[in-house]
Amino acid sequence: MSRLEILKTYKIYIGGQFPRTESGRYYTPFDKKGKPLANICLSSRKDVRNAVVAARKAFGSWSERSAFNRGQILYRIAEMLEGRRAQFIDELIQQGLTKANAEKEVNLSIDRIVYYAGWCDKFNQVLSSVNPVSSAHFNFSTCEPMGVVGIISEQTSSLIGLVSMLMPAICGGNTAVVLASEKLPLCAVTFAEVLNSSDVPGGVVNILTGSTSEMAPTLASHMDVNALITSQLDDSLKKNLSVAAVDNLKRNYEFTADWSKPESQGLNYISDLQEIKTTWHPIENIGGATSSY
């Protein structure tokens, strides 16, 4: 007699916990052949709110952590993902990819995480400047994370889009609320499990599944979200979100890259989610020891 398979329950990820949606609702995405993939949480506006609260709470200690330590944690994510690559490949195949493409996507995702892990303690050196002002002041500009970043994952991939949009955000010290691909949500939830086992503090990344058109406006208009990034949204939703983002002047970016390409990564994705802070301080005795006081 064949063994009965244990099915995985896909939950959402908020503040380092895996709750079900507070709404109790679910939806069932289908694969290409019309077979149901799983029962997935249909998150609500309140889940978005809870996720933002968790992200805000985590922001202080994540952004103030040493850049080296953030790099260690990101590299740990890559290690954990490598260890579970088979599961991700399975899920990607389940969601319609060929085995070769599934393997390619997982490999690229791991490599991309390693890429951004390396940037953690380097981007600020590249993007900062010491500014030679004319007065007797020392003046420098450095990067600071924007805060809570809302990420509306690219819809056509289950893993690589999410990884490509999330990693530059947390690499730079931001915390994130991620809306997973509505039709291809499996890897997002499994990736949350990877994060949870990778020393990523609870709340740094929060991942919600459900209807993008339902959740995205709440995220876009939330007054405690500092930046919103989207990728390949349809024009009318994109416009609505852009308008909603204005009320607290969220930084709003649309990334148009094809994430499946190896070159679709870079410093600019980190710098877009950084504020530049300029600091001034007087310098005594500029002009040398001989100048009179």
Partner: peptide, 13 residues
Amino acid sequence: IPTSPSIDKVGVE
């Protein structure tokens, strides 16, 4: 006697 305040020379200039 009271502690003397510190002086920032650039500000004085």
